[in-house]
Nucleic acid binder design. Sequence first.
DNA 1: GATCATTTGTGATAAAATGATCAAAAATAT
DNA 2: ATATTTTTGATCATTTTATCACAAATGATC
Lengths: 218, 218
Amino acid sequence: MNHLSTPVLPQIPDIVISRLPIYLRTLRLLKDQGVEVTSSQELGELLGLSSAQIRKDLSHFGEFGKQGTGYNVAYLCNQLEKILKVDCVWPVILVGAGYLGHALASYTGFEHRGFRIVAVFDNDPKKVGGAIGSIIVQPVEAIPAVVRQHRCQIAIIAVPASAAQQVANQLIDAGVKSILCYAPITLTVPPNIRVEYIDPVIHFQHMTFYLEKGCIEE
Amino acid sequence: MNHLSTPVLPQIPDIVISRLPIYLRTLRLLKDQGVEVTSSQELGELLGLSSAQIRKDLSHFGEFGKQGTGYNVAYLCNQLEKILKVDCVWPVILVGAGYLGHALASYTGFEHRGFRIVAVFDNDPKKVGGAIGSIIVQPVEAIPAVVRQHRCQIAIIAVPASAAQQVANQLIDAGVKSILCYAPITLTVPPNIRVEYIDPVIHFQHMTFYLEKGCIEE
DNA sequence: GATCATTTGTGATAAAATGATCAAAAATAT
DNA sequence: ATATTTTTGATCATTTTATCACAAATGATC
Ligand SMILES: NC(=O)c1ccc[n+]([C@@H]2O[C@H](COP(=O)([O-])OP(=O)(O)OC[C@H]3O[C@@H](n4cnc5c(N)ncnc54)[C@H](O)[C@@H]3O)[C@@H](O)[C@H]2O)c1
Ligand SMILES: NC(=O)c1ccc[n+]([C@@H]2O[C@H](COP(=O)([O-])OP(=O)(O)OC[C@H]3O[C@@H](n4cnc5c(N)ncnc54)[C@H](O)[C@@H]3O)[C@@H](O)[C@H]2O)c1
């Protein structure tokens, strides 16, 4: 009951976490270009952020830089990969073998950033059994077994909005913990499940607020 | 020089603008379901936001509700569409006719939310001249003329990261004002140009921070 | 028509995020 | 060897964002 028994564990703001993958992406790019050392200022200029922001974000996790010099690019990459737990490859499943599902399933850019699509599902008998690269489309009934087999915690939803909630329920029942939803709809899920969304129209509608109106019709 | 000569024009926070398309998306869904009236509380529950947040966001633009009753769904949709300037259809051009470009160009969900892909460009002679639905892929050299012809202010970049900055420069030179970038790279652009990004890996890496480590290898 | 249950819009308050500042450390120049 | 420049990480100040709480309005109920 004394003050030592209730240590304040430093809860790291989610907005900080959300910037780390951006830092990592740019650091990997610098590394690939052969850059060995960078500074919070250089990184800030590349990303359109203040150098103080970057330093403060990183300071939540430790001291990675050297005064007067900056940050060793390869070392900081490694550290960020550890922090984000992407110093390995995570299995991901994909539901919906339509246009978008095909693009995602055949995308080669996931693997070297920590992710691999290990299975694709669809409820259309005409799609089931078809191949996307080396992956055979399976029926949705196979989801639970595949999730268990791969201990898969992450899923992508690429089905029409009208089916997305039902698919989300099936995924959560099967044990999936995080969902990336491409359907233009907000899902209702239990509080322990994380959902993130990708909807290009949301971005377009954000842009048009700042544009001068210039339309085709209506 | 008196205090009346410098009226404080109420600058609306960008974070407020970024939520409006989400509100609109859900309101349209309610409308399609035949719901005529809703409340900030109901909307908040659907979206995982507080009712106060929604009321305050809307209050930046006027009074759209009725005390004791709530909001007329159709009316609020209309108002949000006006505020976001999507009470019409905006022309959008797309650069990159690869897997992702094909999925985007054949996507039918843009039109009724205010956007139409009017042209697709690629620099691969094997792709130029090919058809995606009713759209013929054009060479990148045709970008300036098409942008002028449609007075197009919005473009999508769906080319490899290594080509994205160069394509962005071409688009900006041609007069494009807003870019939605699918390439996993942060673009450098003048301050009057808006860029937004879609990169699923950024979302995955955000998710894994909160997951218990469970990887395939490495 | 008085009472009650809702729900909005908003000023006040609290919390969170960002930005400015600076001592200390490291590298480089003199 | 000393001075100068650079850059981090921490602290403090400011700005921004979110939440709270309530008067006023509305419709329903008795
Ligand atoms: N194509 C794009 O570029 C694009 C862009 C933005 C958003 N989206 C969204 O992504 C999602 C997929 O788009 P798409 O163009 O690939 O659509 P699509 O119609 O080509 O494919 C959808 C697939 O989902 C399958 N499906 C339907 N119900 C299912 C269920 N209950 N269980 C399993 N599978 C089911 C269908 O059989 C089909 O194969 C949609 O929600 C769409 O709004 C797509
Ligand atoms: N496919 C996906 O699901 C997916 C997922 C996430 C991110 N991405 C990103 O989206 C982009 C496109 O991905 P993709 O899978 O369609 O790639 P892709 O290789 O299939 O297609 C890229 C297209 O861009 C064209 N191109 C290359 N350089 C060009 C230039 N300078 N001007 C015009 N066109 C040019 C190519 O000819 C090709 O047709 C990439 O940056 C990729 O990282 C794709």
